[in-house]
Design a binder for these strands. Structure first.
Lengths: 252, 252
DNA sequence: TGAATAGTGTCTATAAGACAATATCCC
DNA sequence: GGGATATTGTCTTATAGACACTATTCA
């Protein structure tokens, strides 16, 4: 949001003479944690580093920001260029700035969380040798937080570059914290879904089982769900009703 | 957290030849929202800008980061240098990066929230003409979010520089969100306090009245409070028991 | 004694968990 | 019909809100 303010003449003169190099400047990157629920666990995409530093290790998709784009635009651009995805829900996670987090020079990283449903996640096509879908194992309960471990069927344990294990840990922690009072779970589902689908997403993020009856009642009582009138097809049992996110999704 | 990783020789050679200026770099500042509850409302400290840009308007205490300090160290340094406070609870709020948020050049701001009790807040001594304690009026309910307005007895409505009205808005929103499941309210109180003190802090942050009975039961049930065995002194009614934050304060 | 707030006990309304009963699909 | 899951309804238990009552201090 820009301020509707006229720049006074004295300030214009000052601005004309301003030298950006009068303060030391760090480099700044954005890194994107692309999250999707798959087979009951959160997964994220990491890319093998072909260059120094941390060559050969795995890193979140990221890149240096441009001076003519906002942080969110940078995250959108990086995600699109590395995965081909666009129109993805993005949320800023936090900024990592330990002095020695990058051995090259002082580099800050603004981390973003990107949420997609399993279908879109599996559409992502990147050279097989250079990317891995990592299953996130969270070694802590609740919202305690901390670094996490990643593993993939193809590459086994994925050793992460930089502080990316902590970045992914913060993403999981943030998701868990937001799930109770925001409709962020919808971002991890296709447009139409059953109540059990939604419950499984919650269970996947929280890492624990939920009571089915109470979950159903709570979700329907929130008024954020709208029945489509359709039901599942092709399941070998009674089909469940399909819901979509309600248009006037009240923010709590 | 630094990685316990030996740098391979090839990477050492690469690092020796790395040129930080090969990517364009923005300037980066930290801004600190110092929050304290006073007379039933959240207040924050703002400083009148003596230089361009936004000369004469009010801004959060802030400054450019140094390349040899972490972001949190920068926030600590800025807070200490502008207010004399140290040992304050600090938490990263988010990073603001709109392209035109600063008319000088591209400047990102990493915002931090600093929480103190009313006593420490009023200890802050800065030149009277240059600083104002702003009462925060929040024009939205719940956790909706958005910019807020500031006013002070001495200077009336405080027109804020940059995007600082949004930064303060995010601080309030974050505080409201965290209050339910973290002991962050303790940071806004002196070491010993009564249950009513704690309730008033919650009411101040949330901007609404809470049920006394239920609040008392809920807080005592959390197991994060420890009775000191002492009671209030010098009040003209039955003195309330004093509590302190429990040592083994269970997270949730 | 009266004003004021602290603290306790009890009742009610609401939400969560447990579980039984019935519904609807595919095979 | 059998297997599987959906959906509804009821019962029990935990928690929140409301409110009455007693306790303790100062003026």
């Amino acid at each position: 949001m820009s301020r509707p303010r006229a720049t006074p003449p004295a300030e214009q003169a000052f601005l004309a003479g301003y030298d950006p190099s009068c303060f030391p400047r760090p480099s700044v990157t954005v890194d994107v944690v692309l999250l999707a629920p798959l087979a009951g666990q959160l997964h994220t995409l990491v890319i093998r580093r072909l260059d120094h530093p941390f060559r050969g290790l795995w890193a979140l998709p990221g890149g240096f920001i441009h001076l003519d784009e906002s942080l969110e635009q940078a995250a959108t651009r990086v995600l699109a260029s590395k995965t081909g995805l666009d129109g993805v829900f993005l949320e800023q996670l936090g900024t990592f700035g330990a002095v020695d987090r990058d051995p090259r020079t002082r580099i800050l990283s603004v981390a973003y969380c990107a949420l997609v449903d399993p279908g879109r996640f599996q559409e992502v096509r990147v050279p097989a040798e250079d990317a891995a879908v990592g299953r996130i194992s969270v070694p802590w309960a609740g919202e305690a937080g901390g670094p996490v471990a990643l593993a993939s069927p193809a590459h086994g344990d994925l050793e992460l570059a930089f502080d990316h294990a902590e970045v992914i840990g913060l993403a999981v922690k943030r998701m868990r914290g937001k799930l109770d009072y925001t409709p962020v779970g919808f971002e991890l589902l296709p447009p139409e879904f059953t109540l059990l689908d939604l419950q499984k997403v919650h269970e996947t993020v929280l890492g624990r089982r939920l009571n089915k009856d109470s979950f159903r009642r709570r979700m329907l009582a929130l008024g954020q769900l709208e029945a489509t009138g359709e039901v599942q097809e092709g399941v070998d049992h009674r089909p469940a009703a399909l819901y979509r996110r309600a248009k006037g999704g009240l923010a709590r």
